[in-house]
Computed example of a mutant assay.
Amino acid sequence: MKNPIVSTKWLNEHLDDPDLIILDASQQVNQAKVESQYQDIQIKGARYFDIKNEFSDTNSSLPNTLPSADAFAKAARNLGINNDSKIIVYDSLGIYSSPRAWWLFKIMGHSTVWVLDGGLPEWVKQAYEVEKIKKLDYALGNFVSKFKPELFKTKEQILVNITTKEAVLIDARSQDRFLAETPEPREGLRSGHIPGSINIPYTDLLHDGKFLSKEELEKILPQDNKPLFFSCGSGVTACIDLIAYELIENKNPKAIYDGSWTEWGQIESLPIE
């Protein structure tokens, strides 16, 4: 399967696949201030993928920062993940934080990973099996990271790109934040956007917690032959925009600016529009 997403129907039919591991990448709090109505249940057999703690560099001053390859591999092994595991990630908001988990596996060199379209809300809607959230210990996996640095961009590379225009920088934040019409949800950040970036709010790519069809996405997403860099508030929803481009089979190189606006917006020497 080249497609980065799978349906709830597909997952329900493959629950007994011995190599399949289901990961719940839900976040307890999010900057969108959206609360899930499914706080205490999970898809049967799911394992909790803790983006904020286990799968971020908690020593960084920025939220959701990419962990080291070794730290990621250790946390993945603790969840019982192997190099040949087929991984399905979901979250409790439909599509929100699960694409970040998908991208983390991709940058660590693991290709057999997919996002559950519609997430837990769609799973519940289809009346598939759920259970109370439970914390379990798993037999140690053998996962090894094979880090792909080309999928990651730093503020220095973004700064250079403002001049060279080598890549198109896409900002997944809401339009009012992009245009500095509303204050940033995180205190101490300037308002506005990175010069030359274009705004494609991640919410425009979704309907009822699921991705729009390929045909609908093609009408929204601009395309040319340049590489694509993706940014947002803290590197989470940028991954939604990236997956949308994968869904229209866009072959351009794609990378996430991990620091995103939380980094850029607090450094006075960096230019903004």
Rank of each mutant, 00 (worst) to 15 (best):
C239Y: 06
I162A: 09
G209M: 04
D176P: 02
I41S: 08
D171H: 05
D50W: 06
L169Y: 10
F178W: 10
I272N: 03
L140S: 10
S191F: 03
E35I: 10
L206S: 03
L66D: 01
F49N: 03
D137Q: 06
K86M: 08
D224L: 12
I248L: 09
Y90Q: 07
A127S: 14
A32G: 07
L66Q: 02
G209S: 05
F229I: 14
P18M: 02
E216T: 04
P4L: 11
V168R: 15
G188S: 09
W123C: 12
P67M: 13
N83D: 15
L206P: 04
D171M: 05
L23F: 01
C232P: 02
K226C: 02
E35C: 08
L242G: 01
W10E: 09
D24Q: 03
I194P: 06
I5F: 02
K44V: 09
S26K: 04
N12A: 09
W102G: 10
W261V: 01
D57T: 06
N161A: 12
T154S: 15
P222Q: 11
S98C: 07
G235D: 08
P195L: 09
N82L: 05
N199M: 10
K106M: 14
N12W: 00
N12Q: 06
F229R: 09
K135I: 13
D204G: 01
F55T: 00
S213W: 10
R177T: 00
F143H: 12
T262H: 08
D57H: 03
L189S: 06
D40K: 12
K125Q: 14
G118R: 04
N82D: 14
G188I: 07
M108A: 10
F55M: 00
T203R: 12
N78D: 14
L23T: 01
F211E: 01
L221E: 07
Q27P: 00
T237S: 14
A32S: 14
S145F: 08
R177I: 00
P195E: 10
K226Q: 07
S85F: 07
H14K: 11
E263S: 10
E263W: 09
L228W: 07
L228I: 12
Y38H: 13
S174L: 05
S98E: 06
A180E: 09
L247H: 06
N199K: 10
M108Q: 11
N82P: 05
K251W: 07
V34R: 13
E273N: 13
Q157F: 05
P201I: 05
I243P: 03
